[in-house]
Amino acid sequence: MADTTTEPDDRPLWGPTAYLLLVRIWMRAASQYRVSLLLTTVAQLFTTCLDLIAILVIYSHVRTIGGFTLPETLYLYGTTRLAFAVSDALASGVENLATMIRLGNFDLVLIRPVSSLAQVLADQFTPKRFGKLAAPVLTLGWAIDALPLHWTAAKAAVAIGTVVCGLVLYCALWVLTGCISFIAVDAQEVANSFTYGSENATEYPLSIFGRPLGLALTFVLPVAFVTWQPSLYVLGHPDPFGLPEFLRFASPAAAAVLSGLAALAWRACIRHYRSTGS
C-alpha cells in the first residue's frame, strides 16, 4: 500500500458529478429528521402561495395592473417563480456560505479535490426546497389555459427558454450574492435584496416600477430578462418602456453574461479568501 509513487489520476471529478454526489448525501442527512422535513416542506409550499394570494387580492379590486390582466400577471408570476424555485433548489446552498466562512468550515471545502462552487451549491441540500415548485407549476398551467393566446412554435420555444434562462440568471445571482459573504461576512442579508428581491419584483409587470427603475432592472441588474422581456413577446404585449424588439430574445445572452460575471467573481473571491481564526 506504500504506493505513493503512483501518480493519482489527474482529472478531478467533474463539477456536476461532484454536485450530484453531494446533493445525494445531504438529502440522506436531511431525511434523518422526517417530521421536521415534512412540516418545513408544507411551510415552503404555503409560503410560495402567499404572493399568489396577494396577486389575487389585488385583482379583486381592479381589472389591470400596469396594463396587465390577471392571467398575464399570473403568467409572469408562474414563470419567474418556477425559475426561482428550481434555482433555489439547485443553488441556495450559497446562503450557508456566511456561516461556513464564520465557523471556518470553508477551509474544509478548499482541501477537497472538487470544485469549491459545486460543494457550496450542494451544501445542506434538503428535499424541502421542492415544496416551492407546486404553486408556480399549477399557476402557470392555469394562466396558460386562461390566456387568449395563439400559440406558435416560436412562442412555445420562447416560453420554455424563459424558464431555462430565468433559472440560469437566478443561479448566477445566487453565486454573485454569495460573494458578498467573502467581502463582509455579516452583511449576508443584503444578498436577500438581490435574490428574493429580484424574484419578488419580477412577479409583477415591470411597468409598475416606472421608467427609470424599469430600465435599471433591465440594464444594471438584468432581472428584466428573467421573465419580463421574453414574456412580452409570448403575451404579444408592446413594451411599455418602448425598448427595441430584439431584447425580447436577449435572455440567453443576459444569462450568459451574468453567469460569466458570477464565475469570475467566484474565482476572485476564492483567491482573496482569508480564512478566519487560528
Partner: peptide, 28 residues
C-alpha cells in the same frame, strides 16, 4: 491529507462509513 483537530470533515448526521464512501467518489 489534512486533519484539523478542532473540526471534523465528516458528515455529522450520517454513519461514519457513508463519509468514507463519499470520499472514495470525490477523490476517485
Amino acid at each position: 491529507g489534512v486533519v484539523f483537530g478542532q473540526r471534523t470533515t465528516l458528515w455529522w448526521d450520517l454513519p461514519l462509513k457513508d463519509s468514507f464512501t463519499l470520499l472514495q467518489r470525490l477523490y476517485r
